[in-house]
């Protein structure tokens, strides 16, 4: 068999090994302490709501933390928004407007979606209006405290 040989002889394998090793350690911390949060775990009802969120592709138009589609508004803090809130969502969800399809969610499903959005709301803010913008280009974001998260479901 014809074997092609090239002249460059770098320590490529050593560099790759170091990078991969660092990557493994880094991932460990991202998956554990780096993403720890004070917000409570998602309840079974909230997870069922997330399943509905995915099955109905809500993310194609809406965002959570600014991630998703731009046809509809961001819903990160919609449950704690005094002008919107849970009743507003319940009323809106099956009526359908313009580009938004008309859904036929049952009351139980509506509650599950609200439980999911409430759980998201408890994790933080978007837009993060109280963030501290620093002259060196860094941004210190405002974290939601446990006290405020505890109050959210009652709003």
């Amino acid at each position: 068999m014809k074997i092609k040989k090239y002249e460059n002889k770098h320590h490529n394998r050593v560099i790759i090994s170091v990078l991969v090793f660092t990557f493994v350690i880094y991932n460990y911390f991202v998956y554990s302490s780096g993403t720890e949060t004070l917000a409570p775990k998602l309840s079974i009802e909230a997870i069922d709501g997330q399943v509905l969120w995915q099955e109905n592709n809500c993310w194609t138009c809406h965002q959570l933390y600014g991630l998703g589609g731009y046809l509809g508004p961001d819903l990160t803090n919609i449950t704690s928004n005094p002008q919107k809130g849970e009743n507003y969502i319940k009323g809106f969800i099956n009526s359908g407007v313009k580009s938004m399809p008309k859904y036929n969610f049952t009351d139980e499903e509506k509650n599950q979606i609200i439980a999911f959005l409430r759980a998201v709301d408890q994790t933080g803010y978007f837009p993060n209006y109280k963030a501290n913008l620093q002259p060196n280009g860094w941004v210190e974001i405002d974290y939601k405290s446990t006290d405020s998260t505890a109050q959210q479901p009652n709003k």
């Binding site: 998956y31 949060t37 775990k41």
Partner: peptide, 15 residues
């Protein structure tokens, strides 16, 4: 482990 923590879930998804 990932799904019950929304911050972890969303972060790893976009990672």
């Amino acid at each position: 482990y990932f799904r019950e923590n929304f911050v972890r879930d969303l972060t790893v998804q976009w990672k």
